[in-house]
């Protein structure tokens, strides 16, 4: 692009300095570019809020309609595994925040370390999620054609239900546990999908960070990715109590 510096500096700022290579031609200053991309990222997160908002709405409605089914359904989830996942994700958020700090203070090896830790913690989260999913598949708790009501009609046959002290449910309410698991899989699945995308981008970033890409003072990409990662963390912060915890005492 052939924009002469005279044009770029026409009105916005009179300081005469060379553009850094990462400044796009249509921005007057670097600050304007950073502000714009940061704001764009926030707007994207708004769309994400609304995207998950639909699922949360569905959850709240059906929880009120089919309260006993949701209680029994949540007893099938493992709090230790869910809790461990929460720890992993919160810690990964911390390492991500530290990564941003390393980029800002131009610590290259620190940045690579933080990003790698975030990457590993994210993978750990997905690993545990896989364990949880496979358990559901074994018990036929995946909604669809092979959905089984065994654990809810006859809780004594199911260790998790037995441990929670579930009583046998009437057939029509037991059938509504399928709604619970539909939402469980939709919500955690969408969340996991976001994690997978995030981990993919993390891998790319580690690769670039090793080449010293983000420690030259231009940290917008790391910062904006950090926003995304923290957002995914926040979703989980709500999913964990809603799906695993709030019916535990019953």
């Amino acid at each position: 692009m052939s924009d002469s510096p005279a044009i770029a500096h026409g009105a916005a700022d009179s300081a005469v300095h060379e553009h850094p290579p990462y400044q796009r031609h249509h921005f007057a200053t670097m600050a304007q570019q950073n502000d714009a991309t940061n704001f764009a990222m926030w707007l994207f997160l708004l769309t994400e809020i609304m995207f998950f908002g639909g699922l949360f709405t569905a959850y709240l409605i059906y929880r009120n309609w089919y309260y006993p089914a949701f209680v029994a359904g949540s007893h099938q989830l493992s709090i230790p595994l869910g809790g461990l996942n929460t720890l992993l994700l919160i810690t990964s958020s911390f390492t991500m925040a530290m990564g941003v700090w390393c980029a800002e203070t131009r610590r290259k090896s620190g940045l690579v370390l933080c990003l790698t830790l975030t990457f590993i913690l994210g993978l750990g989260f997905l690993g545990i999620k896989t364990i949880e999913y496979s358990e559901k598949i074994e018990k036929h708790h995946v909604p669809g054609f092979h959905y089984s009501l065994q654990s809810f009609l006859d809780p004594a046959s199911d260790p998790a239900a037995k441990a929670a002290g579930d009583k046998p449910m009437a057939l029509d309410m037991a059938r509504h546990t399928e709604v619970y698991f539909s939402l469980y899989f939709a919500m955690t699945g969408m969340h996991a999908l976001h994690m997978i995308i995030g981990i993919g981008i993390l891998g790319f970033m580690i690769f670039r960070a090793r080449a010293g890409a983000y420690t030259t003072g231009h940290v917008t990409f790391v910062e904006n990715f950090g926003l995304y990662w923290h957002f995914v963390d926040i979703i989980w912060i709500f999913l964990f109590p809603l799906l695993y915890l709030i019916s535990r005492h019953q």
């Binding site: 925040a97 109590p241 809603l242 915890l245 019916s247």
Partner: peptide, 23 residues
Amino acid sequence: LNPIIALGIACTKATLVVLFFMH
């Protein structure tokens, strides 16, 4: 109070993340 406490804590945690981790 169970759901209220759970959601209260979740909101607090989310607020902390938004305010500090997300700057």
